[in-house]
Design a protein around this nucleic acid. Sequence first.
RNA 1: GCGCCCAUAGCUCAGCUGGAUAGAGCAACGGACUUCUAAUCCGUAGGUCGGUGGUUCGAAUCCACCUGGGCGUGCCA
Length: 671
Amino acid sequence: MHLPNVLQARFVQALEPLTDSPSDYAGMIRPAADPKFGDYQSNAAMPLAKRVGKTSRDVAAELVQNLNVTDLFEEPEVAGPGFINLRLKDSVLFDSIQQMLLDERVGVSKTTDPKKVIVDFSSPNVAKPMHVGHIRSTVIGDCLARTLRFYGEDVLTDNHLGDWGTQFGIIIYGYRNFGDPAKVAANPVPELSALYRLTNQLIEYQKAKQSVATMADKLSAAKSDAETAKEASDQAESDEDLKPKDKKKLRKNAEAATRRVAAIEADIKSLKAKIDAVDSDAELSKLASEHSDVDLAVLRETAKLHEGDAENLALWKEFLPHCQDEINRIYDRLNVQFDYTLGESFYHDRLAGVVEHLTSLGLTTKSDGAICVFLEGFDSPMIIQKRDGAFLYATTDLATLQYRRDEFHPDEILYVVDSRQGEHFKKFFAMAEPLGMGEVQLVHVNFGTVLGPDGRPMKTRSGSLIGLESLLDDAVSRAKDVVCNPDRLATMDPPMDGEEQQQIAEIVGIGAIKYADLSHHRTSDYKFDVDKMVALEGNTATYVQYSYARTQSILRRASDGEGLPAFEQVIEQAAATQPMTFTHPNERSLALMLMRFEEAIEQVRLNYAPNALCDYLFETAKTYSSFNESCRVLGNDDPSVMQTRLALVTLTGRVLKKGLSVLGIDVAERM
RNA sequence: GCGCCCAUAGCUCAGCUGGAUAGAGCAACGGACUUCUAAUCCGUAGGUCGGUGGUUCGAAUCCACCUGGGCGUGCCA
């Protein structure tokens, strides 16, 4: 049962005698600010009082008079300026626990009007190795797809792969010039990625040589800025008249300036490293001088591919599946699946048609040789065809939208893409209307940048990036250190064999990374700190997983060899037939938390905000830990107390497991 | 120049679309293991929510301006 929604309906009735627009006020239901105020509160009386010219306490009293909630709540109380405090009857909590126990959906209602929703997420460039930057779209998109599915929406996930760009020009060039067909045939994935790396290295080398000179000036300018800021900060530090707040501000300025210097230094360092790596290697230097026009040559290979050159097309067809294998290995490990993987290449032959169509609608303008669409309210146009005739990602996006409309007839499309592409999506969405797609709801589910531990953005262009796979390995191996802590292993009965240990490490390690991403608000930038996310304490997946494992541990003991599924049926039956009772406040708090599961899921859906569910699961796990500490389940003399507690433990386990699964995170039966 | 986002405890972050005394996790300090997993729990300390005005019965939240930070900004995606 979704209590705020129920209450809202009841308040509409109570408000009707007082106002013409009850719905403006009925929704002002919040969980109580403090347990002493009850479980929920309505704030409707205060704003309404002004409108009707009464005191807010009088209005509150009147609302209470009109309100019919005695089936669910104790007598409502008016407090403070006119808050209406509502406390659930224990019997309602008991009923709710029972109902949730008997429900596969643990009480979360299903939509009666399913919409077709396409979730477009992940979209990496194949052939390039995946790195940390790819994690957000993948993990958030997967979570949203799971959430909507859980609600009963008709969800369709699509991975819009970058499988048609320059990266294939790079591989083709590398294969032509440095490749050994026999080796590639025998061992395609590592060979192709080695060829990509080699060719890319030569390109980066040329680029680095060009840009390294101009960096010195930027550096010295930044350095002098940083020095000035540092001096100001130091001076302020010893100034006793200055407020701590101002000191902090100056300190932060100095830090930001220092960070900028560090960023430029890091860029220079990485440029020099790229140059040195080639210069110090006789063979590479030779290749570099022989292939000094490699950047242009790669573009030529790409252009040939796009023009339909038979040989390049054949190579592309040969290489693509191997590149996909590489990416799929990571998806398997992350347990992420797609209904469709329609990459850029799929839309290639539709692009010219898009331009023609827009032109026939009179929307395009030729400007500096490029075909543009100028949109009202935007300074810059959307360019759909370059001067050289090539198409751009805007063109592909339009073609994709048309295809999806014709093929899938979606009600809504979610684009889970970096905030930095916000302007592109604004333009893109603005074009949906003239293209006759105004009825499809298009949403840019944007997300913030992933920052390094030093606080600067992890950008694709700069420095060496942490490969996604090595990051997963790292998290899993650290999780294993903890899982296989000998002191803990010694307490396991039956003992944990190596296979189980490895399984748990995988579940914990991968869960840690996903949770770290999902628990931050989607739109904020966040600092990616491997140490912290696998720290296995605080607000982490591990804490929640551990709480789940503890519920299962108690149930295993309680079942006494009977087998868990059978035993859980016994608990369900008992909950349905025998009276429950609360004897400790932590029991009631836990019951209330469990009942709010639907509210948390709803938040994810309404705001596309997985962090709401993370917060809920963490709170629930904490509440369970406190319960666990204060309320012994087994060996309790009073059968009704034990029954109630077993029901709570069982339901906690199910809610945590279901909640984590909506996040795309697995659980272990013991840890 | 223009546009978008951000500024909350020492650090990392929440704050449910305007509500009661601003929260959590780390880090710090003090307690709790003969009992269902101490990967835990209980407690203490830590804040002028960047600043100034405004709207409101009521503002971290909405508006304006200011300061500082980040990102984007016509032929990459």
